[in-house]
Amino acid sequence: MLNKYSLQRFYKGWQIFIENPLGKTGVIILVVFMFMAIASFFVPLIGPMYDPMTGIDPDIRVSTGPSLTHWLGTDNVGRDLFAQLLEGAKVAFIVGLSAAFISIVIGTLVGMVAGYTGGLLDAFLMRTADIIMVLPSLVILLILASLFGQFNIWIIVFIIAIMRWPAVSRVIRSQTLSLKHRPFIEASRVAGASHLRIIFRHIMPNVLPLAFLYMTFRVTAAILVEAALSFLGFGDPSQVSWGMMLQWVWKSGHMFQAPYWLIPPGMCISLLTLAFYLLGRAMDEVLDPRLRKEGQA
């Protein structure tokens, strides 16, 4: 799959991508957050006081503002907010990327199968997709949480992924439909290639770029849903996340008193969402030559 030609294409795409101001901004923000996520691994090493979940500053009993020992201040039990913020970056990446990955895997498979086979199976899969698409994922997670109790982070990721494949599968399906009757597919069918082989060898490489484009948008959705769920108090209680931090500031009644606690986590969620959105838009332009031309004229 990665022959010289596709490498060249990739390189050209990357060039356009990085020249694009949207893409550049997105990449810069992302890099900052990646550093934060990486830093989160080292913070607890400084001392047990800086563990985002269990570290408690023995001298502090109430929420305090920024200081030298606690750059962003502490929460009401004396945990370091900056450590929590770094941990939140890590969790956001894990949640966003893994949920997005699972949903594009499901979406791509369903889309290719539906588009390639057509007929009843296609109709069934697409109607299912339609139904799931109109359901609000947060509301679904809430009702599931009420029935099954608190979820751990991986189950949340999985449910988000299950709720989020339909849009991907629609796009992949229509792409597959347009590929299906291209000469090279017809030729390999005549040559006796099996359906599986055609789907994976010939269709998949052609739909993957689109799938990745959609992945960036899915990442955003997943991060937002997880944050909202945590904010409402139904997140994984053993996991610090930005949504969780907002839940704490809100539930502990500090939202009007502690801007140093209220502002950073929400800002991070919004910025990370923005970064992935910008990335998606820029990729859109790389993949859609029509848009690119518009930018140049």
Binding site: A227, M255, L262, G266, M267, I269, S270, L271, Y277
Partner: peptide, 22 residues
């Protein structure tokens, strides 16, 4: 518009509540 679109809703709501309400 881009900024509005990517704002995290609960956070934005809390900010409005804090500034305009409180």
């Amino acid at each position: 518009a881009l900024v509005c679109y990517t704002l995290f809703i609960p956070w934005f709501a809390l900010l409005l509540l804090w500034i305009l309400g409180f």
